[in-house]
C-alpha cells in the first residue's frame, strides 16, 4: 500500500504534503497536510499543524488539527492545539488543551 511511514528516530523539519496515509513514529516539525489519514503512534511527536482525512493521536501533537472526517485522541495521546473536525473523540486517559470547532 502506498503510504508514508516516519520511523522512530527520524526527524522531518519542514513542510510535508501528500495524498496518502501517514504513520508517524518519529518526529515531525513544520506542517503536515495530506488527503489521507494521519496516525501519530505512541512515541511519535508532531510539532506542526496537521490536516488529513482523519487524525488518530496516540502520541504527542502540538499544533492545530484539522480533519475532513474525524479526530480521535487515544488513551495516552496528547494534543495541545485547536481541533476542527465534524467528529471528535477523546478517550479516557488522553490529554487535550485547545478549542473545538465541529462545524455546528
Amino acid at each position: 500500500m502506498a503510504s508514508t511511514v516516519i520511523g522512530e528516530g527520524l526527524t522531518i523539519e519542514g513542510e510535508i504534503t501528500g495524498e496518502e496515509e501517514f504513520v508517524i513514529h518519529g518526529t515531525v516539525r513544520g506542517t503536515l497536510s495530506t488527503s489521507g489519514p494521519v496516525q501519530v503512534s505512541q512515541g511519535g511527536v508532531v510539532e506542526a499543524d496537521v490536516s488529513g482525512s482523519s487524525l488518530t493521536i496516540a502520541g504527542q501533537v502540538t499544533g492545530n488539527a484539522t480533519a475532513q472526517d474525524r479526530v480521535d485522541i487515544q488513551s495516552g495521546g496528547r494534543l495541545l492545539g485547536d481541533v476542527k473536525a465534524s467528529r471528535l473523540t477523546i478517550a479516557d486517559g488522553a490529554s487535550f488543551k485547545g478549542s473545538v470547532d465541529m462545524d455546528v
Partner: peptide
Amino acid sequence: ASAASVIGEGTTIRGNVRGRGSI
C-alpha cells in the same frame, strides 16, 4: 529501535529529513 521509514509516492517534503534508521 530504528524502524525503516518510507516516504510514499504521493508525498513531498520541503525541509530536512534526519535521524536514525533506514529510509
